[in-house]
Design a protein around this nucleic acid. Structure first.
Lengths: 197, 197
DNA sequence: TGTAGGGTAGACAAATCTGTCTACTAGACA
DNA sequence: TGTCTAGTAGACAGATTTGTCTACCCTACA
């Protein structure tokens, strides 16, 4: 099992070993938490030597930061996949992603909120990476609100962010049976009556 | 410093040593996270012998569960302190507690959400204690909505819970300048126009 | 006076954590 | 052929983790 005959499919891309580490870390950190998963476990499950690991990630926190950025990349890709459609529909579709994620087998809430809970210092690189993702998402929502002709996109983007975080929490800790309905109700209550429909 | 001439003021109450452990754990767990704080650190700062600690808390997880329950007790006391007043005012007052807490020096978000992030297994006693607190709070809000004559207290209690969690997250991670305003706007947007004012 | 309860101090075991370092292997390429 | 690169395998150090156990101290109380 030791890394002989490794993934040929990865040749030419970043680095086979680095990718395996990143994938394994993403899986384990999300499923069990950052502090609960040790380096030894990651390199064992990724089938990578310790020296190789420390070549790509000089310290564990570097890996955690890269993990957060990887999750951010995945999240943005999912949202970008929504594509062009009427702004109000797009907003609802963004929130539907929460329900989609919550329906996945290994769902364990929002990776950014979970990671932030483990890093008390707001100045820590991991927290900063989380902050970057949050600012991007807020800006994305604000843009959609402007396109929707919302009279106060700044405030409503704040409220939608609040609702998004709350729904991520609820879908994780409370697992409401009617999550999709709850999402619709919440967002529509915030956006108010539609002008064009 | 060793515990000779300990707090005389505590005599007759639970147990001086146990109380000191609980207070220290509450402070450290909240400020730095559960996994990040070790037993050795807690007993050192509490000025308690290791044997004494393990007498009251057979394992660390027992202490963590007690910590969550202690936070629940403190949270309920704060909400109970709101007292009798018109239901809508009471709801707004409950949410104002978030802003009050966020204004405190060592604020680090919601202790329940932070702790939950460190315990992946929903069946774990710590998670169950968190679930109990959340159900209690949801029920409290629902009661206020019924008293307010809300036509759909169940759904609106769900949405208010979502908003409460989201606001706790925002007040922690985003630190919006106008938090009190954001809270008012969010809650009023959810409750809709007041009938009696 | 004797005893029981609550507590202290700290050694110890066994595991686990991060991070470093040495020695080796296999393939690509000039 | 020789060299460079990416990687493996794993010992090791040093700190830290939870939890157990022994020996002792002090005070209240019968």
């Amino acid at each position: 099992m030791a890394g002989n005959a490794a993934d040929i499919t990865d040749i030419g891309r970043e680095s086979s070993a680095r990718n395996r580490v990143m994938d394994t870390a993403t899986k384990l950190f999300y499923a069990e938490g950052v502090h609960a998963v040790g380096i030894d476990r990651i390199i064992a499950e990724a089938g990578v030597a310790k020296a190789t690991f420390y070549k790509y990630f000089p310290a564990k926190d570097e890996l955690v930061r890269a993990y957060v950025q990887n999750q951010s990349r995945l999240g943005r890709a999912a949202i970008d996949g929504i594509g062009k459609r009427p702004a109000r529909d797009a907003i609802l579709a963004v929130f539907d992603l929460v329900a989609d994620a919550a329906a996945q087998p290994g769902y364990r809430g929002c990776p950014f909120l979970n990671a932030a809970a483990e890093y008390p210092d707001p100045g820590h690189p991991v927290r900063q990476a989380i902050g970057e993702h949050r600012r991007w998402k807020h800006e994305f929502l604000r843009g959609l609100l402007v396109a929707d002709g919302n009279p106060d996109p700044e405030t409503i983007a704040d409220i939608l962010t609040v609702a998004g975080d709350g729904l991520l929490i609820a879908s994780h800790l409370d697992k409401p049976a009617n999550l999709r309905h709850l999402i619709r109700e919440t967002v529509l209550q915030i956006l108010g009556p539609s002008a064009d429909k």
